[in-house]
Write a protein that binds this DNA or RNA. Structure first.
Lengths: 195, 195
DNA sequence: AGAAAAAAATGAACTGGTTTAGGAAATTAA
DNA sequence: TTAATTTCCTAAACCAGTTCATTTTTTTCT
């Protein structure tokens, strides 16, 4: 039922564990099922978990003071998601993290993660490496936002993440790329043209 | 002459080292002086160093295909700077990293950093923690860019980093905040009004 | 299956920020 | 201390993307 093979493989891509260490790691995990539109994080509540998507799709977003949504991140199979600001500093969240589909998550809680790093220092390395990758990803996104037009950002996204582009609602994609849903509609129409 | 007190304090804020460990750490560092407008990283060349600013100011920026500059990061005293994508993956840089003033840098090279983490695993933790902080910082910047107007972003910046705002050229600040230098001029005039 | 709700499309009017072009001020170099 | 270069300012025309209002399509619920 609880299949931890995928998350074990994910970890194995970055560090090598003994069987014993792997067993210990898995003992700290828990599986959570969420229905579409359900939240796992909400502003005001401290985010307890770092979540790995086993199946399904999630997104993290902010609602600003003009009631506009801004998507910070998507996560599909084999990706992680959280309100990291809240999780890392164990302070109240500012983001919503919501299921875009019925989703199965594998979660580790903050205290367990700290314990894991103390018990198996290789995990210090693991979290360093995945954080570095996320950092590099965000930096590319900032540069893309600064240097490219809305249209170019859209083309770039569907080329790099076609599986996400066709799976998430358009308003969510627009709010990730930094323009209005109406404009996304306009772009898409120009693209297909009439046929 | 070479004063490593400040960088030792920086490290001590995150991990505790024995004297021996501290001595070893310092033995891996080198000091570099750069003149204003000099580059320490250029596109095409792999970035060898992670650089800590002892005195002076630096910035990292991209030049896009329309010959426009986009500032990724500033660094003043007690901050780090690099083309991290290039540094972490040891692949050719895409950014310029340039001195905005005559600057003294303390640098560690990639191989030394790897060795340091193997020799003193506490540094694995150190780099994890500072990368997490940078990650959180970039995420806030993305959200700010998505949810705020140019004017609001400017106000936010001068409030949070007055020491940087008054120290770097306006075109560099504009290219960091994501608008044209002309528009920054416009904002500044509206701000002071006539008096 | 049919009603209700949510998401996507369309189009016209609008606006925040850009572009272009010129001149003024400040830095740098000799 | 002057010439050259770089940075900054100003203002008008312009445009990429927004806003608003309405309709169509898709999804969800019973």
């Amino acid at each position: 039922m609880n299949d931890y093979t995928k998350i074990k493989n994910y970890v194995a891509r970055h560090i090598q564990l003994t069987e014993e260490e792997e067993t210990y790691f898995v003992s700290l995990l828990r599986t959570t099922r969420v229905k579409k539109k359900q939240f796992i994080v909400q502003p005001g509540f401290t985010c307890k978990y770092r979540s790995y998507v086993l199946t399904g799709a999630m997104r993290a977003y902010l609602i600003d003071n003009k009631a506009q949504e801004h998507t910070v991140a998507f996560a599909i199979e084999d990706w992680w998601i959280s309100d990291y600001n809240s999780y890392i500093n164990q302070e109240p969240a500012t983001l919503f993290v919501e299921a875009l589909e019925d989703t199965i998550l594998i979660q580790i809680d903050y205290n367990a993660e700290q314990l894991l790093m103390e018990t198996i220092p290789k995990f210090e390395r693991f979290f360093r490496i995945i954080t570095q990758r996320s950092f590099a990803f965000l930096q590319k996104r900032i540069l893309s936002n600064l240097s490219k037009s809305a249209h170019e950002r859209y083309e770039e996204f569907i080329e790099k993440y076609p599986s996400i582009a066709n799976r998430v609602p358009q308003y969510a994609l627009a709010s990730y790329l930094g323009f209005s849903p109406e404009f996304l509609s306009k772009i898409r129409n120009k693209r297909t043209g009439k046929s």
